[in-house]
């Protein structure tokens, strides 16, 4: 690894001050499963590493029927994956957490870290966006809340200003008859980076789709919503025809690139296949 200086701030303000002081030379360390890899692979060379694990109050995971799910910046993917309430109410998120790296990685990796790394293919982002999640941000100028779907500005880039850090994720409670599903597409059954990630959260009313959110990963510079596809289904019955039409629409909404993991054409085609599959599975979950 490359040499760096190491800090263990005891409060958010202290952390924020360190980030301001060292600017681009500083990197935040929570789980470390991305940061340490990036340092070792020479993608980043921070002079200062700021470990936030000693800051109190960032490790909670709570749920109540009114406010939904809240979890702090130190909550690991493994904790999300195994929390009964997440499995029951946020099936897409639980599935995405379950497919992130290995169990060893998930015991260290935090979901907030997964968010802040802002990789277009990050697993937890599509389901969180489909769930309508937002993030709480602490910074030199105080706190603010940003909807997760507005948080990303490009690969590895977010709206965070210098000195700001994400402290918490808030996810609204699901309405009755809501079903969710996440499909990660890769060549292997584990240890993959998604070539396409599709998350769907939908709510049924009688036989029609009252509301639906479709979020796509790895097919644009940031995770995106397939808004036109959603609009095509909102208020409509979900059947083979409407689902197929929406899936085709979603194909038109994504902007994939080609790389060693897959061509743009293939990714686009998979958006079509997987959006349809995810809607069907989410509908089954909605009961």
């Amino acid at each position: 690894m490359r040499r760096f200086e190491y800090h263990e701030p005891a409060s958010l303000d202290e952390a924020s001050a360190l980030l301001v002081r060292h600017g681009a030379d500083a990197s935040l360390l929570a789980g470390g499963t991305d940061l340490l890899v990036e340092i070792k692979e020479h993608l980043r060379w921070p002079q200062h590493v700021v470990n936030v694990k000693k800051i109190p109050g960032l490790a909670a995971l709570e749920y109540d029927e009114r406010n939904g799910l809240r979890f702090g910046a130190l909550v690991t993917a493994r904790a999300i994956e195994t929390a009964a309430v997440v499995r029951a109410r946020y099936a897409g998120l639980a599935q995405a957490a379950r497919e992130l790296g290995s169990i060893q990685v998930r015991h260290r990796a935090t979901v907030v870290g997964n968010i802040c790394r802002a990789s277009p293919s990050a697993d937890t982002l599509p389901p969180l966006i489909a769930d309508g999640a937002s993030v709480r941000i602490h910074g030199p100028a105080g706190g603010r809340t940003v909807a997760l779907e507005d948080f990303f500005t490009g690969p590895g880039r977010t709206v965070l200003a210098p000195g700001e850090l994400v402290t918490e994720v808030v996810v609204p409670p699901p309405a009755p008859r809501t079903g969710k599903h996440y499909i990660k597409h890769g060549r292997r059954k584990a240890m993959e980076l998604a070539t396409v990630g599709v998350a769907v959260a939908l709510t049924l009313e009688r036989d029609a789709c009252r509301d639906i959110r479709i979020a796509l990963g790895a097919v644009a510079p940031t995770p995106i919503r397939a808004r036109a596809a959603e609009a095509a289904l909102r208020g409509r019955a979900l059947d083979g025809g409407t689902i197929a039409a929406a899936a085709r629409t979603a194909m038109g909404e994504c902007r994939p690139i080609s790389n060693v993991r897959g061509s743009a054409e293939y990714r686009r085609e998979m958006v079509g296949v997987l959006v349809a599959r995810a809607i069907e599975r989410a509908r089954e979950g909605a009961g």
Binding site: Y6, G32, T33, V37, Q104, V105, R108
Partner: peptide, 19 residues
């Protein structure tokens, strides 16, 4: 490099010694 850190399996290559 898997070891148990407070009973949990982790990749010791992705943990800093000082942590």
């Amino acid at each position: 490099c898997t070891v148990l850190l407070d009973g949990k399996p982790v990749n010791s290559c992705l943990v800093l010694g000082v942590e």
